[in-house]
C-alpha cells in the first residue's frame, strides 16, 4: 500500500490509520526502507531508522522522555477529560471509542501538557498523541492546550508544541471546530505578551490542527519527512483530478514553499530548540548535548 492511501484525512477531519507507529516485538521493520531493525536499538536511536533516517511515529510520553530534562517535570491539566456532549454514535459509540482509546494509550485524551525544562530552560510543552483517535482535537485537547498557554502566560514561560494530528474530532461536531478558534485566541494572548511559541510539526499534522495552533509559531520546525497540510491528499486528488507532485505536503515541500523555518531531526531537536529559546529569552548559549 502506498503511503498516501493510508491517509484518509478529509479537510478538517480525523485520521484513524496508525500503522506507522513503533512496531511491537524484538524486531521491527522500517516503514520507509523495509530494513529489519532491532527494537532496543531503534529505541536507543529515538525511534529513527538506523539505515534510512525514517522518523517513526511516537507517543506523547515517548516524546516527553526524549525532549524534556529528566527532572522537574510537572503535568498540567491532567484532570481534563473528554465529554461526549452530542451522544455521538456512528458504527460505534463515541463513548466506547473514547474508553478503548484511553485503555490503549493510557491517556485521558490526545494531548499531554507538561511543565519542565530543556537544558535547564523552563518551558511548558504540549504533546499530541496520534495513537489516541488520530491525535484529533476535541474539547479536552483544546482545554488542555489553553491551560498550558495560561501557565505560560502566568509565569512568562515559553511554549513548545509537538503536533501529530489528523485534525478536528468529528465526533464532537462543531465543538471540535471551535477548538481551532479557542486555541488560536489563546496563542494571540500569548503573542501579545511577547512570550515565545515554538511549533514542532511531526508526522502527520493536518486539518484543523494544522489550520490553527500548529501554524502560529514564532518559529515553526518540522521533523524530516512529516506529512503536513490542510486538506487530505485524496480530497485534493479528487478535486483537482491531477497526480500530486512528488513529496507533496512533506516537510521539504513546506520548507521549499516558505511555510516553515527549518527541518530538524529528532536527534538535534533539544539542541536546536534550547539554542533558539536561549536567544529569544536573552539567556546564555546552552551547551550542546552530545547524542549517544
Amino acid at each position: 500500500m502506498s503511503w498516501f492511501k493510508r491517509l484518509i484525512t478529509t479537510k478538517i477531519s480525523t485520521n484513524y490509520s496508525d500503522k506507522k507507529g513503533v512496531p511491537e516485538g524484538i524486531w521491527a521493520k522500517c516503514n520507509a526502507c523495509n530494513a529489519p531493525v532491532y527494537h532496543a536499538e531503534l529505541e536507543r536511536n529515538l525511534f529513527v531508522c538506523l539505515k534510512c533516517g525514517y522518523h517513526f511515529r511516537i507517543t506523547a510520553r515517548q516524546r516527553i522522555d526524549m525532549f524534556l530534562d529528566k527532572d522537574g517535570r510537572y503535568e498540567l491539566a491532567e484532570e481534563v477529560r473528554p465529554v461526549d456532549r452530542l451522544k455521538f454514535k456512528d458504527v460505534k459509540k463515541y463513548k466506547d471509542r473514547l474508553a478503548a482509546a484511553q485503555e490503549a494509550a493510557g491517556e485521558n485524551d490526545a494531548l499531554v501538557a507538561m511543565k519542565g525544562r530543556v537544558k535547564g530552560i523552563q518551558v511548558v510543552g504540549t504533546f499530541f498523541d496520534f495513537s489516541f483517535i488520530g491525535g484529533s482535537m476535541g474539547a479536552a485537547v483544546g482545554e488542555k492546550f489553553v491551560c498550558a498557554v495560561d501557565a505560560c502566560f502566568a509565569e512568562r514561560l515559553p511554549l513548545i508544541n509537538f503536533s501529530a494530528s489528523g485534525g478536528a474530532r468529528m465526533q464532537e461536531g462543531l465543538i471540535s471546530l471551535m477548538q481551532m478558534a479557542k486555541t488560536s485566541a489563546a496563542l494571540a494572548k500569548l503573542a501579545a505578551a511577547d512570550i515565545p511559541f515554538i511549533s514542532v510539526l511531526t508526522d502527520p499534522t493536518t486539518g484543523g490542527v494544522s489550520a490553527s495552533l500548529a501554524t502560529l509559531g514564532d518559529i515553526i520546525i518540522a521533523e524530516p519527512g512529516a506529512l503536513i497540510g490542510f486538506a487530505g491528499q485524496r480530497v485534493i486528488e479528487q478535486t483537482v483530478r491531477q497526480q500530486l507532485p512528488e513529496g507533496f505536503q512533506r516537510s521539504q515541500f513546506l520548507l521549499d514553499h516558505g511555510a516553515i523555518d527549518m527541518i530538524v531531526s529528532r536527534h538535534d531537536m533539544r539542541n536546536i530548540i534550547a539554542s533558539l529559546l536561549a536567544k529569544l529569552l536573552h539567556l546564555e548559549q546552552p551547551p550542546a548535548d552530545e547524542f549517544n
Binding site: 478558534a181 488560536s184 496563542l187 489550520a211 501554524t215 502560529l216 486538506a231 500530486l244
Partner: peptide, 27 residues
C-alpha cells in the same frame, strides 16, 4: 463548502491563511 483543497492552495499555505485569521479576529 470549505476552503479550497488544491495543490496551489497547499503550496501557498492554506493552513496558515486560516489560522492567521482566527488569531487576528480574536483580538
Amino acid at each position: 463548502p470549505g476552503a479550497y483543497p488544491g495543490i496551489g492552495a497547499e503550496e501557498r499555505n492554506q493552513s496558515e491563511a486560516i489560522s492567521r485569521n482566527l488569531f487576528a479576529m480574536s483580538k
